[in-house]
Simulated scan of single mutants.
Amino acid sequence: MKINHLTSAEENLMKLFWKLQSFYLKEVMEHHPEPKPHQNTVSTYLKILVEKGYLSTEKEGRIFRYSVIVPLEDYKKFLLKELSLNFFNNSGKEILEFLFNENLISQNDLKTYFDLKIEMKPVKIKQPKLEYAEEILNPKKDKKGKDKKKKKKKNEN
């Protein structure tokens, strides 16, 4: 089954639909949080989501009953794969590094989930060399001796 991209509005409605699983338009309007969209707007989105393959319809008299076809877990997998491909060079390692750097996941999270002995070592940042500051703070004593030798060589020539 090919999963298509959703707009943010479609995704927000799908979050409600994944909770309901099977529903009528009237139930969507009842369960939608405030501010509620107009019924025609919701009806249009339902039609679009049926066309995109996220919902199916079953006619019951004069009304339609909608059912979710694409499970939430499949949509999450789709989004994560797209994110990985487009932003992390299709690398799980890069995703994990990003999650650690942004403090979205911790070492303890991984330990409890995988039950592994993982030790994260802090990244060592190389201290910049401050050559000029070193010269000023710790002047070399040999400089004067070198200057005298240079003068002697010049005088000899």
Rank of each mutant, 00 (worst) to 15 (best):
D74H: 05
G145F: 06
K76P: 09
N12R: 15
M1F: 07
L16E: 13
I118G: 02
S91Q: 01
L6W: 04
D142W: 10
P122N: 01
Y54Q: 01
L130I: 02
K140F: 09
L20R: 10
F87V: 01
K129T: 04
I69D: 05
K146M: 00
L116T: 15
I69W: 03
E60G: 04
E34H: 12
N108S: 12
F23Q: 08
Y54G: 03
I95Q: 10
P35I: 02
E156Q: 14
T41K: 02
K151P: 01
N155K: 15
S106N: 11
K144Q: 14
K15V: 09
P122R: 00
E34S: 15
E30L: 11
K19V: 10
Y66P: 00
F17E: 02
P37Q: 03
L25V: 03
E119F: 05
F100D: 02
F78R: 00
K129E: 10
Y113T: 11
L25C: 01
E119D: 11
I136G: 10
K126V: 09
K148R: 08
K117E: 15
Q21K: 15
K19T: 12
Y113C: 06
H38S: 03
E27S: 05
V42H: 01
R62C: 05
K143A: 08
E27V: 00
P128F: 09
F98T: 07
I105F: 07
E134N: 15
L20I: 00
K151Q: 08
L116Y: 14
P37E: 04
D74G: 05
V28C: 08
K77N: 11
V42A: 02
V68E: 04
L72M: 04
R62A: 04
E60N: 15
L55A: 04
L83W: 10
K154A: 13
F64G: 05
K124N: 12
K126G: 08
F88H: 06
V70H: 07
D115M: 11
G145E: 05
F87K: 12
P139S: 09
L137I: 12
P71V: 03
K52E: 09
V50Q: 08
K2P: 07
S43T: 05
Y24L: 14
Q39D: 08
D147T: 00
L72I: 02
E102I: 02
R65W: 07
E34Q: 15
F23V: 01
K143L: 14
V70M: 03
